[in-house]
């Protein structure tokens, strides 16, 4: 495999806090995240609320500027790209939102909203636009006549299909899906997930799949990165990470997820307390305050991600 399509290079993003004279600590949403996604590869990004996983998605799309570090798309640094260059890159990377209700403009037909992408980038000549919109709708399992309808006439699952059609309109290589199914009912979730999996293989899309639902990631992704308090704790092929998690946080997370079948149930590691504030993370390993295996040394320095295929940021390699 050659150069990755998307690369995060020590990406860091801090949000300043409000206040007249800039008092208060900045919130460290994302700290030194390095990640790469090859063409056609699906990477899952899991973590609890406040872990910074959505921010990583926005950073990789260049929607937010990084505080430090670089976000590269096909070798181009998004922060250095000229406006025209960035516009051309925008065509190639798209976002699917979590909230199927808020992500569509209630005042315009879904056809017009899908066509926006075609108009902005001048992808197809005006006479052919309607046909293209119809084709896109069919691609996501909707009917061409749906183009004339308004978002409120659709169910949640159908809206999410419209959102996917809009993202596909520019013919992207890379899709960030930010919790695309968490607002949907289980039976509808499965439909949308099947659609995403199908599109991925058919169109060869690279995908960053942001989710808090571990089994979903297990099914859809090739690799998975686990985030906690703005940092990546563990990263590797899904099969390996799920079968033999090496970071204590990954273990706790996997064991905490309820499971349908008793045979999948792991010995539950109940984490004590709650994640600390990202404005004031602990010294050393950010997980040490809740880690059942923490040593005094864990407070000393920040453990680096180590390993080749399966990387983990923990100084305890002796636990089992």
């Amino acid at each position: 495999m050659n150069a990755p399509l998307v690369r995060a290079d020590s990406l860091t993003r801090h949000f300043g806090t409000a206040g007249l004279f800039g008092r208060g600590r900045p919130v460290q949403a994302v700290t030194e995240v390095s990640l790469s996604i090859a063409r056609g590869e699906a990477v899952g990004l899991v973590g609890e609320s406040g872990s910074g996983k959505s921010t990583v998605g926005r950073l990789l799309l260049g929607l937010l500027p990084a505080t430090s570090g670089r976000a590269l798309f096909d070798g181009t640094d998004l922060a250095q790209a000229k406006p025209a260059e960035l516009r051309a890159l925008r065509r190639r990377m798209q976002l699917v939102f979590q909230d199927p209700y808020g992500s569509l403009d209630p005042r315009r037909t879904v056809g017009a909203q899908i066509a926006d992408a075609l108009v902005i980038h001048g992808i197809v000549p005006p006479p052919a636009r309607a046909a293209r919109v119809a084709a896109l709708l069919e691609q996501v399992g909707l009917a061409p006549e749906h183009a004339q309808r308004y978002p409120h006439e659709f169910s949640g699952g159908q809206r999410q299909r419209v959102g996917i059609a809009r993202a596909l309109a520019t013919g992207p290589d890379f899709l960030v899906a930010d919790e695309p199914v968490s607002a949907l009912d289980v039976s509808v979730q499965a439909q949308v997930l099947a659609l995403l999996a199908d599109l991925r293989t058919r169109l060869g899309l690279a995908m960053l799949f942001i989710s808090h639902d571990l089994p979903v990631v297990r099914h859809l992704c090739d690799r998975v990165a686990v985030m906690y308090l703005g940092r990546v704790m563990e990263e590797g092929p899904v099969a390996q990470v799920f079968a033999s998690p090496r970071h204590p946080y990954t273990r706790a997370l996997l064991s905490a997820a309820p499971s349908l079948h008793a045979r999948h149930r792991r010995t539950r590691i109940l984490l004590q307390g709650e994640p600390p504030s990202p404005a004031d993370p602990p010294s050393g390993c950010v997980f040490r305050t809740r880690c059942p295996y923490a040593l005094p040394a864990c407070a000393e320095q920040i453990p680096a991600l180590q390993g080749t295929e399966h990387r983990v940021a923990c100084i305890r390699d002796d636990i089992d």
Partner: peptide, 21 residues
């Protein structure tokens, strides 16, 4: 039965949706 099939299981078959609404 359909609801159970639509819930993702770690090493089971991929989840299946229920058609329609």
């Amino acid at each position: 039965a359909a609801l159970l099939r639509s819930a993702p299981v770690e090493d089971g078959p991929p989840p299946e949706g229920i058609p329609g609404v």
